[in-house]
């Protein structure tokens, strides 16, 4: 049983690594955000008395790369369906749950590794975490966030038949989740409306936990962050498993 989950997991990693445009794109985009926003907005941010913007931004960009990669990996099920490979997996002597677990763990691992690379990248361009020890719990938060959105991607992909749905997901789900999460701006002093939306966006808690651990400033606080992330991740994986078990060709 574990061997089957392992080989499904490994497949996700291989596919990611072999798709060089995807690897380069998913590193280029965070780098662009870090440089353009981090340096571009730095002066304004500083004048507003909020400190160093790059330090503020880096955890948000790590969160961004995790959510994009994780949802995208989950959604790869649509590709598998279109190119026929999903059939091969669905007729094999294993349960739908095992397939879902293998696929989700694979996607989460890819997104997690992506987050690690972006963390290193942001350190390279000037981000300074407050301490090295805090990086370890931060890695845990990164994996939990990755798991959450990979499960979410599987749930969504199980309900979609073709690529057209993917554009909708990108524009009406991933983008809002990212922009409304407090990844780019501080939630302190934000309008009530925005706060209410951020409060139901699970990425807010992932970013807040990362920011707290790496720079020392929390908005929600670590216990609430972990509780919200764990709750949302369980929900996403459960929904993904259920919807995936209903999949038909």
């Amino acid at each position: 049983m574990f061997e089957k989950i392992y080989i499904l997991w490994l497949r996700q990693l291989k596919r990611y690594w072999r798709s060089k445009p995807r690897v380069i794109g998913s590193l280029g985009q965070p780098l662009l955000f870090l440089l353009a926003l981090g340096y571009g907005m730095g002066a304004v941010f500083q004048q507003a008395g909020k400190g160093d913007y790059l330090d503020f931004l880096a955890p948000g960009i790590i969160g961004m790369s995790i959510i994009f990669t994780a949802i995208f990996s989950g959604i790869e099920i649509i590709w598998d369906r279109q190119f026929g490979f999903l059939k091969e997996v669905l007729v094999a002597p294993m349960s739908r749950l095992e397939i879902m677990i293998g696929h989700t763990l694979g996607g989460a691992t890819v997104a997690f590794l992506q987050g690690v690379v972006v963390l290193l990248l942001s350190i390279a361009v000037g981000f300074g975490p407050i301490g090295w020890i805090e990086i370890f719990p931060a890695l845990g938060i990164m994996f939990l966030t990755a798991l959450l959105f990979a499960g979410f991607g599987v749930a969504v992909a199980s309900r979609l038949n073709d690529m057209q749905g993917f554009q909708l997901i990108m524009n009406f789900l991933i983008m809002p989740l990212f922009f409304l999460s407090g990844a780019l701006f501080p939630l302190e002093g934000a309008p009530k409306m925005l706060l209410a939306i951020a409060a139901i966006d699970p990425l807010s808690y992932g970013v807040d936990a990362l920011r707290g651990l790496l720079t020392g400033s929390y908005y929600y606080g670590l216990p609430l962050d972990i509780a919200a992330l764990a709750g949302a991740a369980s929900l996403a994986v459960a929904a993904g498993s259920y919807l995936f078990s209903k999949i038909q060709i």
């Binding site: 798709s19 190119f83 026929g84 059939k87 091969e88 007729v91 002597p93």
Partner: peptide, 17 residues
């Protein structure tokens, strides 16, 4: 599913492997 195997009419390979 434990008891059968199948060859599909249309493609079911992973192109990236």
């Amino acid at each position: 599913r434990q008891s059968f195997g199948i060859v599909f009419q249309d493609q079911s390979l992973d192109d990236e492997l």
